[in-house]
Design a protein around this nucleic acid. Sequence first.
DNA 1: GTATTTGTATCTATATTGGTTACAAACAGC
DNA 2: GCTGTTTGTAACCAATATAGATACAAATAC
Lengths: 140, 140
Amino acid sequence: MHVLTLLAWADEEPLKSEYLACSVNTNPVVIRRILCALSRAGLVTSQTGAAGGSRLARPATEITLREVYRAVEPREIFSMHRQRPNQECPVGMNIEGVLEGLLSEVDAAVDGVLAEKTVAGLVEAVRPRRAAKARPRQRA
Amino acid sequence: MHVLTLLAWADEEPLKSEYLACSVNTNPVVIRRILCALSRAGLVTSQTGAAGGSRLARPATEITLREVYRAVEPREIFSMHRQRPNQECPVGMNIEGVLEGLLSEVDAAVDGVLAEKTVAGLVEAVRPRRAAKARPRQRA
DNA sequence: GTATTTGTATCTATATTGGTTACAAACAGC
DNA sequence: GCTGTTTGTAACCAATATAGATACAAATAC
């Protein structure tokens, strides 16, 4: 989210992973790993070489946070126990299916929230001071 | 969820951690750790000693999965990056608050789904065969 | 009093994540 | 083309979280 906000903020100008890492306060390779996932999902484009860097592949208003989430988060957050339950037990033999259904519903709810928001919304949200400064004066 | 379904299924009869562990297919201590959290949240009661065990503290129809989730899951699933972002950067200095707000919304959505469901609902859901067997015959 | 079970401490194994170094491939500019 | 820069990715280490296991005191039923 932080990376995409920076890219949207920069508005088409390609940013280097080192610059992004400085804002996020981490290592450039960590950023490049994330950019790689975002690139595979078609959200950003990157270019190697001098004057290289990354920028949004699509307008920030058209990138939903749901897409970002799915691009970056490879596995389910909620997941089953590592061992299969005891299939001899009437509860154990059916609980997996029940919980899978529940997790699907939870997942859909998360998607619902994230689908309503965009990277452009993040940029607006991190700009409270600039928005305030843009107005000439607070009326009353 | 699995443990509470078993306790509700047993209907007031106290179950031992070893029995529960057998159905979940794990170690009794793992189960006891979970029972301990559920007990602190007032969802189950346990008794030491011979003929001891655990049972629901309240009717299964009145225990929502939201309560279960909050009782067992100590930390936020989605969380911030381990390092604070760069406070010199206009994006870095504001992104934390923005993301906290987003995570609150996601959390609320998850709560919304889980609050609608109860342990009794889980018991019903794992009983498809018994429900079918309860009816004398499938009509047509 | 004895046997049993919980509650909890402690330890180990394993998985995940973040961070780091290293380097080939790609690219811009001269 | 040559050079310098940046990405993409592999490999490795450290830190953290979780599951699983052993052990044992406290509590309880019989």
